[in-house]
Design a binder for these strands. Structure first.
Length: 364
DNA sequence: AAATCGGGGCC
DNA sequence: GGCCCAGATTT
């Protein structure tokens, strides 16, 4: 709980949180942010736009040399519009995501056509240009003109999810909507004239301090207002994408004991799961289990005890083991111990290195 | 091998 | 507006 200066105005929880977000981020940015990026000097709508497009899905370090060469080749938006598609692609070659370059070029031509050769200073008009979505439009407005507009890139999503303790995968529309609402609230509290810095501050903060792995919470200017930090959820937020459900497989495990209480084990094939280890004989289904039983054992398959189904999760699938148990069996005459099949006494099990889930089945 | 990421496209 | 994809990098 922060102390409040005597006589200071009471503010709502949200108001407190919102004003503090920008009010703490900006001093941090002044001291630790990036102030020497090529598109900041000189700062122009065209250069800001170009940098934002290049920075989509591409790191600053990679973008810088491409940006320098690109603005040298096409110093102004009309220069870009006048260039051929081949000339543009030649400058873009190596940056990847070439649809960005095609959209950039098309947007430049549309700006010449519709906006007198300039980027429009209007959210809807910007948003209507190819390659400019809601976030990029906000980034351009705030950085080029210090207009009050929010952004929402991967950094901002992560920071807001942590600061506000927003659970749920940010790819979910409902979660993203929530994050946008928070971003729009925060941006209202940014001092006039500092919107460009605020936008850059969020990106720098997410990229250098509030990183996905190992965030530097001890250096963080807002950790004492951060829900994730308070609750120890920094590593858990933002909620990762839900993994696809594991494929489900099942197998019948044959637990055959002989008259001396030894169990019949089979060596696993040299490839696949548990390769080379000793394990219970295993069949895909009851039919295959019956066939295997009749080929290798003397006795009544249908006299088996059905033990409880036991699940085991591997990295890439879940196996439901259906154990069938027989006692006092003997092998068919032709089947004795060999390299791949042997009767094993209980005391011997520890030395064999059984897979842990098989060990559990036998212990149960 | 799987997650990530802004925008576009589709309904 | 919700949902999914393309394309390339990162972990």
């Amino acid at each position: 709980m922060r102390s409040k200066a005597p006589g200071s105005a009471r503010s709502s929880f949200l108001g407190t949180r919102s004003s503090h977000y920008a009010a703490r981020l900006l001093p941090w940015f002044d001291q630790h942010g990036r102030h020497d990026l090529p598109w900041q000097h000189p700062r122009s709508p065209y250069r800001v736009w170009l940098s934002e497009i290049m920075l989509q899905q591409t790191q600053v370090r990679v973008v810088i040399p491409y940006f320098e060469r690109f603005v040298q080749a096409f110093p102004t938006l009309p220069d870009l519009a006048a260039a051929s598609a081949d000339e543009v692609m030649a400058q873009w070659a190596g940056l990847g995501y070439y649809a960005r370059a095609r959209n950039l070029h098309a947007a430049a031509r549309r700006c010449v056509e519709l906006h007198g050769g300039d980027l429009p200073r209007d959210f809807e008009a910007l948003h209507a240009l190819p390659g400019i979505g809601r976030s990029t439009a906000g980034a351009i407005l705030s950085q080029a003109w210090n207009d009050r507009a929010a952004i929402m890139d991967g950094n901002v999503k992560r920071v807001l999810a942590r600061v506000h303790g927003i659970a749920g995968w940010p790819g979910l529309p409902a979660v993203e909507k929530q994050l946008w609402t928070l971003a729009e609230q925060h941006v209202r509290h940014v001092p006039e004239g500092r919107l460009a810095d605020y936008t850059q501050a969020q990106m720098d903060f997410g990229a250098t301090l509030c990183t996905r792995a190992n965030p530097a919470c001890l250096l963080c200017p807002i950790s004492d207002d951060c829900v994730a930090f308070r609750d120890g959820l920094t590593e858990a937020l933002p909620t990762p994408k839900p993994g696809k459900p594991l494929p489900e497989r099942s197998a019948v495990m044959l637990m055959a004991f002989d008259t001396q209480g030894r169990v019949l084990l089979q060596r696993r094939p040299p490839t696949g799961i548990w390769s080379g280890l000793w394990s219970l004989p295993q069949a895909e289904d009851t039919g295959a289990a019956r066939a295997w039983f009749q080929a290798h054992l003397a006795g009544d398959f249908d006299a088996a005890d059905e033990l409880p189904e036991t699940p085991h999760t591997f990295t890439h699938y879940r196996l439901h083991m259906l154990p069938l148990r027989w006692r006092r069996l003997s092998p068919r005459d032709a089947v004795g111990d060999n390299d791949d099949l042997r009767w094993v006494a209980p005391g011997e099990l520890t030395t064999l290195g059984l897979p842990a889930p098989i060990r559990k089945l036998l212990d149960a």
